[in-house]
Design a protein around this nucleic acid. Structure first.
Lengths: 229, 229
DNA sequence: TCAAAAGTGTTCCGAATACACCCATGA
DNA sequence: TCATGGGTGTATTCGGAACACTTTTGA
């Protein structure tokens, strides 16, 4: 089983982050355009090598910050991809993460870097051809994303601290590409006992909505919505 | 973001497999006793280095086979662990998998290897102290296991091709440490439309039970049982 | 007074739960 | 005939789904 520590050559290890946001009533993903070979001028999921003195999550946060300038976003490990030939340069194992960032945070300037000529948000429905096995990674991320919306409270990480029930519903309608009944949606959301009242919105030219915020202590899994096709 | 391919030193990469079975009416996990430092004589989850010419899954299957002599078992990737100091020998990133093997397969002889002095099944309720961050990995695996039993048909990978409904129920009662109502359990299982009749058991000294087998084409996620505490 | 979005209740249906007795067989 | 596990039905409760109109505000 185990040999001495350095008997085997070591593969390279990268982290890749699938960064989602909701913008212009669409689910979007952040991609970068590669400046170098391989896959020069192809779009790719942002990522980079893991340094020896940082954990996988630290590496991912660093990449995320370098690419978007944002911190403190929803971040979770997705899956590790390790096919032998997934990178033509040699053996590279990647640990993929996925992140959800809110509209305001995402509105900050995106910055190209030394290895990237462009950075842009792509609607999930109109993706370009992707480098490496990134199409597969993205597929995986989309599945996970939907699952997370059904079974956990991640949706709220796309909203402000205070939000209206209609805003929550809109997010769900975008993610699931489906309309929900307003009364049932609100009833379900309120019955979960995860929200608390947070005053009223002002300065709208119609009936002002109630604001809510997420309660602090919530179990990890809260079956939010059962969505059928 | 990216530098030239070999600008960074590479961490070592291992795979670890949490191997579960149900034996003697208990959920058990396979552990190995380490022959060498670090953590000499401590119990650990079996695992080893990923070779340059094998994928993560291939490496895991190889380890699984070396340790238990079994092939063709349920295997899925669990999570990757990459804290900087998780291995005192240096930077080691591990991709953890979990496997479920059936009683008969598990009954084969377990074999010690060059780096392992003993191999043994431990009931999940009476675990020894574990090497590295393996306690954390095992915790993670236990959670995933329960989830899988609630939402998928993994349970059947612990049974023969043909099985009785009572056998299925026993497996669930062991995993969830909880009794289920026989009529409701059977009703639910049959209503899922995932089983087909496979004759009758013979040679039992009581009313012979119906046998069932799992239908071939089943969606990935079938909400089998909702289990409440 | 109008436009815009907020807010609200009831009926129906299907699934989950609780619960106890008879059946078929070999010993 | 007995011991052993196999097998079965009904009533109740709870949550999900369908469905349309009134309210509040600023412009």
């Amino acid at each position: 089983m185990e040999k001495k520590f350095d008997d085997y050559p070591h593969p390279a290890v990268t982290v890749d982050v699938v960064i989602f946001t909701v913008k212009d009533k669409e689910l979007k993903v952040l991609l970068v355009k590669r400046k170098n070979e391989p896959f020069k001028n192809k779009w790719a999921i942002p990522g980079g090598f893991v340094r020896m003195n940082e954990s996988l999550e630290e590496a991912t946060k660093r990449e995320l910050f370098e690419e978007t300038g944002v911190k403190d976003v929803y971040l979770e490990q997705l899956y590790s991809f390790g096919e032998v030939d997934r990178d033509p340069r040699g053996r590279v194992i990647t640990i993929a993460y996925f992140a959800l960032i809110s509209l305001e945070k995402a509105a900050q300037k995106l910055r190209a870097t030394t290895d990237v000529s462009e950075v842009a948000w792509f609607p999930i429905s109109k993706l370009p051809e992707l480098a490496f096995d990134h199409a597969k990674i993205l597929e995986y991320a989309k599945k996970r994303l939907r699952w997370k919306f059904e079974y956990t409270t991640v949706a709220f990480s796309l909203l402000d601290k205070k939000f209206t029930l209609s805003e929550v519903q809109k997010i769900y309608e975008i993610i699931f590409q489906k309309k929900f009944d307003k009364r049932n949606f609100r009833k379900k959301l309120l019955s979960l006992n995860i929200l608390e009242s947070a005053g009223k919105e002002k300065e709208v030219s119609h009936r002002p909505p109630q604001l809510f915020s997420l309660k602090k202590k919530i179990g990890e899994i809260v079956e939010i919505l059962k969505v059928q096709d």
